[in-house]
Design a protein around this nucleic acid. Structure first.
Lengths: 202, 202
DNA sequence: CACTTTACTTGACGTGGGTTCAACAACGGG
DNA sequence: CCCGTTGTTGAACCCACGTCAAGTAAAGTG
């Protein structure tokens, strides 16, 4: 009946391991269903623990969701940290490859993370926006450092907004990609690269 | 205490009027707070009716949210219906003007509508995706009909995905615009136009 | 093998927002 | 003016969230 019947006896994990496990289950569920259709009890059952334990690790359901979003934003930023000192045009392709690698291997987390955009309260949105802001700055820095694109980009009256829009473009394309449209990773990568260059270089 | 104390006696509206009023209140609230932070009771109080009446018009809270999203998607499609027979480059500017006019005058509805993306269940998402699909087809048709852009667009391996991505771009920029970034409507319009042409024409 | 520590369970309970339903009252036709 | 229709109410019900105290058992420690 409960999910931990595989191990007849109760298993005892370290605080870190357990926390990690719960967040992983949360990422999966929040990637599949909207916030209010995910029950704390369901999370506990799948994790093979009692409901009480979840409240031991996370004070409220919102805190749990926030922790899932935060964890995934950190993972994303970590996995896509900029490799410095490369010309932007090549770096763009490489960065997108890295990013798509992340999206592909952590599809659940990626989807759960982007639920924070429209389903989150103020605290959740703050974490979400902070992560997007970091990505934004990373891209802006790479653009500014490039001898070819730097001058062009500086002429745009609202470069920041353009980059934010492009992030939305990329996110939407990736979510659609994950939903099972039969595209190769290269097609997605090229489409996104083309989009960014298109906005910057007319 | 309750919101209808202005009119001492209870007012009885026609089914259509009441429904419309409730949906308008819903659009405002759902534009300001995530789904689960909007209370049915709050909607009823603002509308000056009892909680029970809401459940007379809409079976569940989800159905209510769905109706809000549906109403706004219809309005959006109606207000931005394509003016046929114009060259795409000019039509793009004109269409974006129309669209931004809609976004500006119905900011609440627009925001509420886009909450469906991440906060909706299956039924809500279906309505949401149907509206996006209609917008998509509208754009694709306009592109295909244009003598200049048509041939270029046909060469893209995944034109539909590109358009969908661009819609996400435009949406993100508009939402940021509404949030109070000090941009003129012309700047937003030009940025979005530039983005679409940039993806299509390399 | 005791013994300590602490991850973890159990079950009962309060709270609050979603949902239901029988009764009420405002309007329109006769 | 009465009466049927129907917009509307108020209170009760349900259920997931969240709390808590007391206890159980798995790992480390001597």
């Amino acid at each position: 009946m409960s999910a931990n019947q595989g191990a007849r006896t109760r298993r005892r994990l370290s605080t870190e391991e357990r926390r990690e496990q719960l967040l992983a289950v949360g990422a999966r569920l929040f990637s599949e269903s909207p916030y209010d259709e995910v029950w704390i009890e369901q999370v506990a059952e799948i994790a093979g623990v009692s409901r009480g334990l979840l409240y031991h690790y996370f004070p409220t359901k919102r805190d749990f969701f926030l922790a899932v979003v935060e964890r995934e934003s950190e993972r994303m930023l970590r996995m896509t940290a900029a490799v410095p000192g490369v010309p932007a045009r090549d770096q763009l392709t490489a960065s997108l490859d890295t990013f798509l690698e992340y999206v592909d291997t952590h599809a659940h987390g990626f989807r759960a993370f982007h639920r924070a955009d429209a389903a989150g309260d103020q605290a959740v949105r703050r974490v979400y926006q902070r992560a997007l802001g970091a990505q934004e700055r990373q891209i802006l820095a790479a653009l500014a450092a490039d001898p070819e694109l730097g001058p062009v980009a500086r002429e745009l009256p609202d470069l920041k907004l353009a980059v934010r829009g492009w992030l939305a473009f990329t996110t939407a394309v990736c979510l659609e990609w994950l939903r099972g449209s039969d595209l190769t990773r290269e097609q997605v990568r090229d489409l996104c690269a083309r989009a960014l260059l298109g906005v910057l270089v007319p």
